[in-house]
């Protein structure tokens, strides 16, 4: 089984983002960037499938400017076999990303595409489902368990109220939720080894895909702040204030 796994370069999850004063977006200059945490879980899942002998090749793809090769190298250090960098300076939205990935899927013919369930920058949670729809493949979103079976993959999905398992005919698209696994730490020898792994570059135009025009970003603002609160002395005062002042109990 061949696995294609996607990785997006995003503002590190520990960085507190700031909205630019002109409201044009958030400040991403000179902040720490990392692989989207859900994508890291997806890469780990792919590598474990290969280590278990259930996959024979793991290919990682990232789309964006030259700097995204950092996250490809990280994925290679985690254990992916080779990388593909789809080069573009445009800030793509899920429709164009899913178009590019669909074209890549036609060329690479993976049996399974593993992705993070959402990117922690735009929080869209769309690309994998759009991709599966375009390809006409089954989808297993929010996975907390992945078990390849005969020509299928059984995916345990986190849904409102519990867990639900579905069987997807391969090829299929699966998205990783938080509890699918805990990604390993990258060791220095793996980083050295990753430098020698193949990394192919192509442009977005090579895939015949143009940028998006579906959504126009009109502006970004700070969410409304909250009034400073009061400190209460004990539980009795808390109960009294919640009842008499806030009138919520």
């Amino acid at each position: 089984m061949k696995v294609l796994v996607t990785a997006k370069r995003v503002v590190d999850h520990n960085v507190r983002v700031r909205v630019r004063p002109d409201g044009s977006g958030v400040d991403t200059a000179s902040v720490k960037m990392s692989m989207n945490p859900f994508d890291e879980i997806a890469v780990e899942a792919a590598v474990r499938l290969r280590e278990a002998g259930q996959a024979d090749e793991v290919v990682v793809v990232s789309i964006g400017e030259k700097a995204v090769t950092d996250v490809i190298r990280t994925a290679l250090a985690l254990g992916a076999d080779r990388g593909i960098h789809v080069d573009t300076d445009a800030e793509l939205q899920p429709p164009a990303v899913s178009r590019a990935l669909a074209e890549l899927a036609v060329r690479e013919t993976p049996d399974l595409i593993l992705m993070g369930k959402q990117a922690i920058d735009d929080d869209s949670n769309q690309t994998a489902q759009m991709l599966a729809g375009r390809l006409g493949w089954g989808q297993g979103t929010f996975a907390c368990g992945i078990e390849p079976a005969d020509g299928e993959v059984i995916v345990a999905r986190e849904v409102d109220g519990g867990t639900r398992r579905v069987a997807l005919r391969l090829p299929a698209v699966v998205t990783a939720d938080l509890r699918l696994n805990e990604p390993r730490y990258v060791k220095l020898p793996d980083i050295m080894k990753a430098k020698r792994k193949p990394l192919e570059a192509m442009s977005l135009a090579d895939l015949g895909v143009a940028g998006d025009a579906g959504l126009t970003l009109l502006g970004v603002s700070e969410p409304p702040g909250r009034e400073p609160g009061v400190r209460v002395a004990d539980a009795a005062e808390l109960a009294a204030r919640l009842r008499d002042e806030a009138q919520v109990i």
Binding site: P95, S124, Q126, Q129, G133, T141, F142, R157
Partner: peptide
Amino acid sequence: STGKDVMPRVAGLLDVAM
């Protein structure tokens, strides 16, 4: 969780943004 699962696929099938 159902809406998040289904609606982007609908957008993909319709080839529109969401």
